[in-house]
Design a binder for these strands. Structure first.
Lengths: 211, 211
DNA sequence: ACCTTCAAAACTGCATACAGTTTTAAAGCA
DNA sequence: TGCTTTAAAACTGTATGCAGTTTTGAAGGT
């Protein structure tokens, strides 16, 4: 239930700023308002929606400043995970990372943006796991989820696919060399560039809508 | 309401493992079960309590492994904040930090553990703010809250007070010199030592109780 | 004395109802 | 025509009741 609504937000079925009124949601999921309310509270705690007293919950639409905060935090967290992964991943994990990364080149060449986006999630998740720290994993996963609505369109830019591959290449290379500093820096730079691409789209999105 | 229960957990009025049944809480706060249920959901999302279907919520009692994760994450976050503070704090902020730090020496000398603990919170919060990043602030604050139940007793060890002051000294010094690397390292070490002191107390706590 | 079984009590999950607030829209007035 | 007022519709916040599940405790058997 919570997950269903969260997915609607993360996958972009609901746009930032959109209202989530309890009665409609209750009808949609064929339950009463009570579980809907609880789900909304949880989503609020997760930062995906915002609530004010006696008003509908709305999909969080962060200010440009806060968006910058989130991307910077994301870069720091990614760097942290890459650094720790470079120290802690097993040989098997490193080899798997390298193999999947190599295979992803085919997706880049064929321009399969959807498939590459799916692989991209797996790639990053492997690095989060490689850090061997559940709490850091939770934080980075949650931050990623909150940024998802603002990062949706990134692979529509045709150059992003190849660019992303090259950046992954640097990260993988540093992790295979067990070079924490280099892995951290490469991961940080990777997010920074995604951030630049995304803010453009966020601005476009705003102009494109009415409310 | 949420804050009231959260405070009970953070201040130690409720011990990890303790059950929070809805009816008692509703009676305690003189409301019905509905708002209590919603508060519990929120606390669950915050990680302060855990819930399973058809069972009472209980104050989160993390495993030793997860506790280690949390302290490591805390060290990384503190280091991050100290590093960014060393880069971004204004002159005024740096001077205030130094001044308050200097004043805290009196508390150490007089052995005022309670007062020093209060000052300690202010000190760290200043560094979190100095990083100029709202999302990082949220993460570090939340992690700190979740660790609070396991860090309660740290200043009871008489040597911890003086030790803490010395560690703060290193952090303040690095921030005043605008040396991000040194600030980060000092902050990281500071948490690591708190972690060592706390796990001892966590273990004691476990032995001391029945359930 | 200890374990098993079963029933009652206690509690959670959800639906519904009602009170209070906000939003909307229509009617009256300038 | 445009602004103000006011009432109704819509929605949120909370209480309460019922169904289903878990827990507790006592009775019976070994």
């Amino acid at each position: 239930m919570v997950r269903a609504v969260a997915d609607m937000i993360i996958t972009g079925a609901m746009v930032p700023g959109e209202k989530l009124d309890e009665i409609s949601l209750a009808a949609k999921f064929a339950v009463s308002r009570t579980p809907v309310r609880e789900a909304l509270r949880e989503l609020c705690a997760m930062g995906l929606v915002e609530r004010e007293p006696n008003r509908s919950a709305v999909v969080t639409n962060v200010s440009e400043l806060h968006l910058h905060s989130m991307f910077e935090a994301m870069a720091e967290l990614e760097a942290m995970c890459a650094r720790l992964s470079a120290e802690r991943m097993t040989i098997a994990e490193r080899q798997l990372l390298q193999r999947e990364h190599y295979d992803s080149l085919a997706l880049v060449r064929s321009g399969a943006a959807e498939d590459y986006a799916a692989y991209n999630t797996v790639f990053h998740t492997r690095i989060y796991r490689g850090a061997r720290n559940d709490h850091i994993f939770d934080m980075v996963t949650q931050t990623r989820a909150r940024l998802a609505p603002f990062r949706r369109a990134q692979f529509r830019l045709p150059t992003r696919l190849a660019r992303s591959y090259e950046e992954h290449d640097e990260i993988v290379d540093a992790i295979l060399r067990a070079d924490p500093m280099a892995a951290g820096q490469a991961a940080y730079a990777h997010v920074t560039i995604v951030s630049d691409a995304s803010t453009v789209f966020a601005a476009h999105d705003k102009l494109g809508r009415k409310n």
